[in-house]
Simulated assay, not measured.
Amino acid sequence: MLSTIALDTQVIKPGLCTGCGACQGMCPYWDSVDGRTICYFDCERRDGRCQRFCPRMPTDLDALRRQFFQEETILPEIGPFRGLYLTRAADESIRANAQHGGTMTALVELALKEGFIDAAVLTRSKGGLNPEGTLAATPEEVRACCGSSFQVPPTLAVLNRALREDKYHAIGVVGTPCKTLAVYKMKGNPLPDNDNHAGNIGMVFGLFCGWGLDWEGLRTLTARHAEPEKVSHMDIPPSKYHSLELRQGGETVSVNLDEVTPLVRSGCHYCTDMTAEFADLSVGGARSADGWDVDRKWNQVIVRSEKGEQLLKLAREKGVLEFKEVPETGLDKLKGASMGKRRNGEKYLAELRK
């Protein structure tokens, strides 16, 4: 079966595509427009990188985990696990522009300075709208990517182009669970006759993710409640708030989540991974008994690999991150939330197979 036909029939048409960009940046056949993956031409290859790397094509996840992580560290609820931490960037200027505590920006910047990576594939957006993938090679370029977006850009197209150029040999990648899974598929499924230089991937930084939103739908929704060009930040607080927050100037506008959930991308309904299980380190917003006003300024970090452990230890030693104690129930709550998303995704997948 031709690779483009396989992706079209098994991923695009059923609505499984995540828009991650793993199929792009390698040839002129695949592209993305406002978060929608499109194919310009049929391909004659029967086994291509686009098909092998797509996170929605069939994958033996257990085998992939065992290939890259120590089996004794793998927890059934959240994947490879070497520790859970609550952290935030020590640098106030990073925190000021961050989604939460700025941990991800501080870690990627440290990894770049200390030689863990020599460049990083990141997402850059203004206020959360119209994001784009970018390759950062300096601390200043890393900091320019502070903040988050609920639109999903094809960031991995940037990675594919960087790998093809073979200029950087320890590239860091920051991405949501679908993107980090695709990166590990790249690392684990090389094509000997068509090398994608996956050995040039240095570290993988995962982002906790509930879902992404339709590009045009989010732009329209934002325009109904704020001036899009003036929005500097958007966030979704814990479920009890049932809202999307838009920060405009010094004010915050709350949008009822009932207006937001219809915009969830169809492919996100089938996702079973909340915490980016395929990564060296995974970072999300903090959850504790201190409440949202405190938690919104902190992150929770899962260490998954030895390299991730080394970087977090260095961040503590150099004072790059501030740490505070994880609540006794922190890990159990994280496991419960993760399993909730997994069950929901499996339910949608079962309905799809009927």
Rank of each mutant, 00 (worst) to 15 (best):
N196G: 10
A289N: 03
S149V: 09
E114V: 01
V204I: 09
V158L: 10
K179G: 03
K113E: 15
V231N: 07
M203A: 10
P154T: 06
A276T: 03
L218N: 10
E109T: 07
S338P: 02
F205M: 15
K185C: 06
V11G: 07
K307A: 11
V231D: 06
T18P: 01
G15K: 07
I236H: 00
V142F: 08
R353V: 06
G267R: 10
P58L: 08
I171L: 02
R66P: 01
E325L: 09
P327C: 07
R124P: 02
I12F: 15
K113N: 12
G285C: 04
P192Q: 02
W215Y: 15
W215P: 03
Q99L: 02
L159G: 08
L312Y: 09
L75P: 04
S232V: 00
A98G: 04
A111V: 07
G308L: 12
A63P: 03
L263M: 14
G175Q: 12
Q67M: 12
C20Y: 04
R353K: 12
L2E: 14
R164C: 08
T155W: 05
H242E: 10
E132D: 05
G21I: 14
H233N: 02
R161H: 12
N344G: 03
N194F: 10
L321I: 13
F41K: 13
G115P: 08
E44L: 09
R343W: 13
L314Y: 02
A22L: 10
L257F: 13
A223W: 01
R66N: 09
R124N: 07
G175D: 10
R124Y: 09
W30R: 05
E165M: 13
R143C: 12
L61N: 09
E216C: 00
S266Q: 12
A89R: 11
E109R: 15
F53N: 14
E351T: 14
S93H: 13
G147F: 05
V204C: 11
E259W: 08
E132N: 01
I201V: 15
L181I: 11
E92G: 08
A90D: 13
C268Q: 06
E251W: 00
P192I: 06
L213K: 01
R287L: 15
D290N: 10
G25M: 10
T261P: 03
K230S: 01
R219M: 02
D31C: 11
D293T: 03
R224A: 03
G115V: 11
T155C: 08
T180F: 00
D47H: 11
L218V: 00
H225M: 02
I94D: 08
M186A: 03
R304Q: 08
T105K: 00
T155G: 01
L181G: 00
L107D: 02
L107S: 06
W211Q: 04
G206S: 03
K187M: 14
M57H: 05
A276Q: 09
G101H: 00
W298G: 01
V142E: 08
L16C: 04
E277L: 02
T176V: 15
S239G: 11
K167L: 14
Q51A: 13
R164S: 10
K354R: 15
L213M: 06
E165A: 13
Y184D: 05
L84F: 14
A157S: 14
A289P: 06
A279I: 09
D62P: 00
D118G: 06
G319V: 11
